[in-house]
């Protein structure tokens, strides 16, 4: 499948890195740029963006600063995106590497498990998991991570399968090195490149899922989240529609940044796989 054409010129990677770095910087500096509690009512109600220098992006129906909410919301989105991707990577790379390296029963079991998890309706499963575990930033991370690892596992397995009989791996084996050592130091470092690119795509996916969960009221109730901002703005579509539009643009920009990063990485790290 050609998931990436056009959006992948030589500068894709640079642009992706730049956008992600900018986002991370904004999220980190949220407290400096807009000090205080983003949930506090600090100004007049329903102030439109670009009308008051004190609140460049306006205020919401309760007089809360929209710019502050967006900045602090970036923290949640990035944290959940990266956290969920970390969960998915740990499970996916771990299982995929073991299955690819040892083959046989382990490989068979992993394939069946991947089939099973990929058959489940993933968004509903995430909803169920968050509802069962009670909504919190940790449960959201876990719920998204637990539903998005099979792709990483399949790719890792394929890469390990390709490398496990390479000359240097056979050499390591004849030297009597242990399986764990060979897998970690000889096989994975050579097969991880395409997986890294996929991890960026998983982050982008996780940001979208987190937004949808928070929109449905399954986010951390104590933290500002872009999806929850949009959910709260729903009754005000006729009047204060910017309250819905701005967080949506923030989500869009974040997903785009990680997509660019992923496309750029896969191009740089795995030129011959560009057609995948």
């Amino acid at each position: 499948m050609s998931a990436r054409f056009s959006f992948s010129t030589p500068s894709t990677l640079r642009l992706g890195v730049l956008c992600v770095a900018l986002l991370a910087l904004l999220a980190a500096a949220a407290g400096l740029l807009r000090p205080g509690d983003p949930m506090a009512m600090v100004g007049p109600r329903g102030l439109w963006p670009l009308t008051d220098g004190a609140f460049p992006l306006g205020t919401d129906q309760l007089g809360r600063d929209v710019a502050a909410q967006l900045l602090f919301g970036a923290r949640v989105s990035l944290a959940v995106g990266v956290g969920a991707a970390a969960v998915a990577t740990l499970i996916g790379v771990g299982l995929g590497a073991v299955a690819g390296y040892f083959g046989g029963v382990a490989d068979h079991l992993l394939s069946r498990l991947c089939d099973y998890v990929q058959t489940l309706p993933s968004f509903l499963l995430s909803m169920v998991l968050v509802a069962v575990l009670a909504p919190s930033i940790g449960s959201v991370m876990l719920a998204i991570g637990l539903t998005s690892w099979p792709e990483i596992a399949r790719l890792t397995r394929a890469e390990v399968l390709r490398i496990r009989n390479a000359d240097w791996v056979l050499a390591a084996r004849t030297m009597g090195l242990g399986h764990g050592h060979i897998l970690l130091n000889h096989v994975l470092p050579n097969g991880i490149a395409p997986v890294v690119a996929m991890i960026a795509a998983v982050v982008a996916h996780a940001v979208l899922v987190e937004a949808a969960l928070a929109f449905l009221g399954l986010g951390d109730p104590n933290l500002v989240s872009w999806g929850a901002m949009i959910g709260n703005a729903r009754p005000l579509l006729r009047t204060l529609w910017y309250l819905m539009a701005l967080p949506g643009l923030a989500i869009f920009a974040t997903v785009m940044a990680f997509t660019l990063l992923g496309n750029g990485l896969s191009e740089r790290l795995d030129p011959r796989g560009a057609a995948r």
Partner: peptide, 25 residues
């Protein structure tokens, strides 16, 4: 390809809300 990339990066509920503001309101 550009359009589909843009669509993939937008949350569907947001597309729906923008549609409401545009076509209904």
């Amino acid at each position: 390809s550009v359009l589909s990339s843009l669509i993939f990066a937008m949350p569907s509920f947001w597309i729906g809300l923008v549609g409401i503001v545009l076509f209904a309101v």
